[in-house]
């Protein structure tokens, strides 16, 4: 990569940087870990279509976690992701998590990672039936403490659909 920083530019910047802290990122968080979701990430795009799938992604994580009897902090720990991000995924249905977070969650919860990347808005959806199934699933599942029979059924059918594709 070409960078061209002249001595004049650096000299000009010295004063501006004198007492600066320059940190960017997240507070006390360093769990970004290697995962290889393949080169397809280069085709990542935000689109209206993937946006509409977000509610299904958050709901799926919430229900699948509860089905497995995992507390949020336990899942965050096992998946090596930040707890605040997991809370955001489950509660803010329009939140787009980082690809690495999705991959970690999929691996920990034994869900198909590419489908999870599509559902979360990180990969372009190639199969239109996913959108229909996701909307149906989101509509059938509601946030309650214990999984209802209908939620349980909706969850199992949706995960079966994801795994078959």
């Amino acid at each position: 990569m070409k960078t061209n920083l002249s001595k004049e530019w650096l000299t000009k910047r010295v004063e501006r940087d004198e007492k600066a802290d320059v940190s960017a990122g997240m507070l006390d968080l360093g769990r970004l870990q290697a995962e290889p979701p393949t080169a397809r990430v280069e085709s990542i795009q935000a689109s209206a279509e993937t946006e509409s799938l977000h509610p299904a992604f958050g709901r799926l994580i919430n229900l699948w976690r509860r089905k497995r009897g995992l507390r949020m902090d336990v899942l965050a720990d096992r998946a090596q992701i930040d707890l605040t991000e997991l809370i955001e995924i489950e509660r803010n249905l329009h939140y787009t998590p980082e690809p690495r977070t999705v991959y970690q969650l999929a691996k920990t919860l034994e869900l198909p990672s590419e489908r999870m990347l599509e559902l979360s808005g990180n990969l372009v959806v190639r199969d239109s039936s996913l959108g229909e199934e996701a909307v149906r699933f989101a509509a059938r599942s509601e946030s309650v403490e214990k999984l209802s029979k209908d939620e349980q059924r909706a969850l199992e059918e949706f995960v079966k659909f994801l795994s078959e594709k």
């Binding site: 769990r31 970004l32 290697a34 290889p36 979701p37």
Partner: peptide
């Protein structure tokens, strides 16, 4: 922050 883990991510993930 754990920079070793970030390096692994950067190595494995083209983006």
């Amino acid at each position: 922050w754990d920079w070793r883990q970030k390096q692994e991510a950067a190595d494995a993930y083209l983006a």
